[in-house]
Design a protein around this nucleic acid. Structure first.
Lengths: 243, 243
DNA sequence: ATATTTGATTTTTTCGAAAATTTACGTAGG
DNA sequence: CCTACGTAAATTTTCGAAAAAATCAAATAT
């Protein structure tokens, strides 16, 4: 079987949803691109209805947009959208981190250290271009989730996760153009230390700066790709660099 | 045709989604209830796939929950969930109102007054049991949306809207048991005044209290209905009171 | 030249039958 | 009496053909 192993217990629809989300985040399906049914059906090996179900859910997550009875397109990117996203993330993440620092227990602390360690080791192992790899995305995501996991709010956790994924698409776009090596590992370490020391003021300040600087970096590296009218399929970006 | 007029330009799926959302919010589909396909198919006059698409989207909005390959149930209610929801709403709404007060222009102010007027007039026209009517829900929702519409963040607006609907279900549950007449109209008026006067401190304080008191009221009136094991279809609440 | 109609073509949307999966039930064995 | 197992029934999930709607292009009218 050439098929990638489907998670047991998951429906086919959930599996396609999952794969499509990744493809959008990784810009294999490009921002603004029209999502036609026949091609997608072939790509994911599913029926119309199943595909439609996935598309419709992605629309609820703002990763695609549904256009009346004219099908779906991948959600476009824009500097305005990224800024909006960033501000919202700062609001949510700060609140979650604050609550976590107030309520977090030993397990929470342990999980943070574990997640950081995994991320750190992987970064060193992958070397110079760690941020292009698929698996690093997951580990990095897990680290940031661990930081705020003790906030005791399923609603905030869910929201944060969706915002994080939307933002991840922007990071992904810019990473292919990155020039200078950003010392994220140091930043991450400082955040861990401040958080575990329960230094609220410092930790919140660091996390906000971390989020905002990443966003500014994205605009500096890839901002020129956004907002440019028609998607011009094919020539717009180094699309295979991550494959 | 006995069919309710479908919004033009909308797909059938979007229409069912819309109707189902209302039915869940109004507790015609009760919290925790199993959502079987055959009955729903008859109720909404759609095919399996179309139904599934709607269900799947509602799952993304946390109004239903999908259980592996075992179908869907209406999202259960609980005091913990309501508290979580309330705290999150306070966080979001305060930020949105603050921004709106800083950035709102004349149109924003005019829209608030218009929305308030519509709500106020309808309340007086409907009299004692205004809160049981379908249309009041919409007008009340529009009023609160208008208050924070100038925050210039599509992301926050979208999030707030979903949270508001989740909360509306709780309000709806409790309204059928309400004893004492709450003077919401006075509260709303005070919020409008403080907001238009750009009295940040007061307006934010009022909106927070408004949200929290409503929530406490819900718990006082209907809290006894939550968290009670099996949904026991049929006998649990005065289900036809609103029809 | 520009706008409008018409009809063929493409694309999306909906449908219900068929396949897969879970649940319910009855029987046998401990 | 309870548990384990297997079969039947109920329910969910998937599929692709058929219907509906939008798009495109040529022809005609303004």
């Amino acid at each position: 079987m050439a098929e990638k192993q489907k998670q047991v217990g998951e429906t086919r629809a959930a599996d396609v949803l999952h794969r499509m989300r990744l493809d959008i985040i990784n810009c294999e399906l490009k921002p603004g691109e029209k999502l036609r049914f026949e091609p997608l059906r072939a790509r994911y090996n599913v029926s119309f209805s199943t595909l439609r179900e996935a598309l419709s859910r992605l629309a609820a997550e703002s990763l695609v947009v549904a256009e009346g009875q004219r099908g779906f397109i991948v959600a476009p990117v824009s500097i305005a959208d990224l800024n909006d996203l960033t501000d919202t993330r700062v609001l949510i993440e700060i609140e979650m981190l604050r609550r976590s620092m107030q309520q977090g227990d030993d397990d929470w602390e342990a999980d943070i250290l574990a997640a950081f360690h995994r991320m750190d080791k992987m970064q060193k192992r992958l070397g110079r271009e760690y941020y292009l790899s698929e698996e690093w995305g997951a580990v990095h995501s897990a680290f940031h989730a661990a930081l705020v996991a003790a906030c005791l709010s399923p609603t905030l956790i869910e929201m944060r996760h969706k915002l994080f994924e939307r933002a991840h698409r922007y990071r992904r776009m810019s990473s292919q153009f990155r020039k200078k090596w950003r010392k994220k590992d140091v930043e991450h370490k400082m955040i861990v230390d401040a958080t575990l020391a329960r230094d609220e003021k410092l930790a919140l300040q660091l996390i906000e700066r971390h989020i905002r600087e990443t966003s500014e970096n994205v605009i500096a590296n890839a901002g020129h790709l956004f907002d440019q009218g028609a998607p011009d399929p094919g020539a717009s970006m180094g699309q295979e660099a991550a494959e």
